[in-house]
Amino acid sequence: MKKTFAVVFLLLSTVAFAHKVSIFATEQNGKIDVYGYFSDGTPAKNSQVEVYDALSGKLLLTGKTDGNGFFEFTPPQGVKELKIVLYSGLGHKAVTTYQLEENSSQTTTTQGKEKTTPSQENITTTNLGTESIKVSSNVEKIQLILYTADGKKEIFTFKVGGNNALTKVEQKNTARAVENGQTSNEQEELQKIRQIVNKETAFPWAKVFCGIGWILGIFGILEFIYARRGKNKVD
C-alpha cells in the first residue's frame, strides 16, 4: 500500500480541492450582490439563485449567476431578512441569510464618518457584478470609474477570471483613493470578499490529517473487536 499513498500525496501537491459550493452576499448601494464559488475557488457559473423572505419563507425572486459567479438584485421593500439559496447543479446547494439594514445609507458610515449622500449619488457604477454581466462573460479586465463629489474621476482596473474573480491589477490616483471614504469602502469590500474566499479555499492540511487519524483509529477499534471475537471462537 505504500504506493497508494505515494500516488495520493504526489497529486495533492499540485492540485486544488473541491467540492462544496459556498455563497457570499454583500450589499452595495441598496443592491445585494451574491457570489457563489466552489471550495477550490472557481466561481459557480449559471447557478440557480432563489431569494426568500427569511421571516415568512415567501419566495421573492429567482435568477441565475453570470459567468463570474455573480448575481445582483434589488431587495423588495419591507423585507428585513433575506434567505438566499444557490443551487449549482448535481445536488450542490448553499444557503445564507442576509440582514437588511433599515436605512441603507448607513451601510457606508461604519467608520464614524457622516453620511456621504452626495458622493453616493455621484457614483454611477460601483458594482463589479453588474458590469461584468453587461459586457460579456469572457472579459478579461473591468474598469471601474468613480466620480467623486467634487467632480474628479478615479479609474480602477480589475482583472477578471482565474480562480478568484476579483484581482486588482492596477490602480490610478491612489492618493485620492485614501481620502475618499466611499472609495476605500469599495476596496475594503472587495478585499473582504477575497480574504474570505481565499481563506475558505486554502487546502485544509490540518483537517486532512485529523480525518486520516480518526479513520485509522476507528479501524483500529474494529480490528480490536474482530481480534477479540476471533480469540473467543478459538477458546
Binding site: 497508494t4 499513498f5 495533492l12 492540485v15 486544488a16 473541491a18 486532512v208 486520516i212 479513520i215 485509522l216
Partner: peptide
C-alpha cells in the same frame, strides 16, 4: 487504508 484514500481523494480536484 482505502478509507483514508477515499477520504483524501475527494479533495483532489
Amino acid at each position: 487504508l482505502l478509507t483514508s484514500l477515499f477520504f483524501v481523494a475527494s479533495l483532489i480536484h
